[in-house]
């Protein structure tokens, strides 16, 4: 399978603190690559570098297209999602709480809709071409809501949903930008076992049906071991292990990193 993302010698320093230290790894198309590690290992920081929120101190990140590769360093914040099509979710859910579920999903299709609305001109004139495009966007939202079973709540405020549903909504909102790479920061945090199982199903669906590469940060090992194709283990910003789920489970380094070393 072809490479989707390669991270090369990524380093991120905050003053004296090295949050990521010379990290290199690859993620493949149509695979779920998990990044695990103890608290403070630097996982979220990797995402922040990938998605343009932080400018890495050093290193390169490439997203591979058919025959070319684009350097993610060149893009800052919104362009990562807009141009490079890398979408993400956040460790602390970031929905638009006072807006409806449907509106949340439409904001994710903002750029297409802006063009369709002729940068608001056609929209103000209420042209049919715009109304059709808007209907398509609503249909797409409905498609995703059907999948996560939230269609009946489409018109409620996103902030009023139960926690688990908010997590799922955030994921499908990211999917609405039709990303090539989807980065999920602890999507299973705070979910009960039933919701976790549903999440597994959703992620597998995205991987196989949507041909999207997934980068997953997760502490919940049932999720990680159940669905990961590849696991990267971080500790203090360094990569300490990389391999399949089974290899990771049995790795001495990983167990030590999580449980500490017996002197």
């Amino acid at each position: 399978m072809s490479n989707l993302l390669s991270v090369e010698n990524l380093t991120m320093k905050f003053g004296g603190l090295t949050a990521i230290d010379d990290l290199s790894f690859d993620a493949k198309n149509n695979q779920i690559t998990s990044i695990i590690g103890p608290n403070g290992a630097g996982k979220t920081t990797v995402f922040n570098c990938l998605t343009g929120f932080y400018k890495p101190t050093n290193g390169q990140m490439f997203l591979h297209k058919e025959n070319s590769k684009i350097s993610l360093r060149k893009y800052t914040d919104f362009k990562i999602a807009y141009v490079a099509k890398v979408a993400r979710t956040f460790q602390n859910i970031r929905l638009f709480p006072a807006m409806s579920v449907l509106e949340n999903l439409l904001v994710a299709q903002h750029n297409e809709l802006m063009v369709a609305s002729g940068y608001s001109l056609f929209g103000l004139l209420n042209l049919k071409s715009y109304r059709d495009k808007e209907q398509l966007a609503v249909d797409k939202a409905k498609y995703w809501l059907d999948i996560i079973g939230l269609t009946h709540r489409a018109d409620d405020n996103a902030g009023d949903l139960p926690y688990g549903d908010q997590r799922k909504l955030e994921i499908v909102r990211a999917m609405c930008i039709e990303p090539r790479l989807l980065c999920l920061d602890e999507p299973a945090a705070g979910l009960n076992p039933k919701e976790s199982a549903e999440l597994n199903k959703l992620l597998k669906f995205i991987k196989t049906e949507k041909q999207t590469g997934i980068l997953l940060i997760e502490h919940d090992m049932s999720v990680v071991m159940g669905i990961s194709d590849h696991v990267v283990v971080l500790n203090y910003g360094k990569k300490i292990f990389e391999g399949t789920a089974d290899q990771t489970k049995n790795s001495k380094e990983v167990i030590e990193a999580y449980l500490g070393v017996d002197e």
Binding site: T51, G52, F53, D77, F78, K79, I80, A81, Y82, A87, R88, F90, R94, L95, F96, P97, A98, M99, E103, L106, V107, A108, H110, N111, L113, M114, A116, S117, Y119, S120, G123, L124, R173, A174, C176, I177
Partner: peptide, 23 residues
């Protein structure tokens, strides 16, 4: 219109907006 929704989304959460490609 999309631009109006983007205004409100920005008011709600600018970081989330950026992550969705809204300028």
């Amino acid at each position: 219109l999309p631009v109006g929704r983007a205004w409100e989304a920005l008011r709600e959460d600018e970081i989330a907006c950026k992550s969705l490609g809204v300028n």
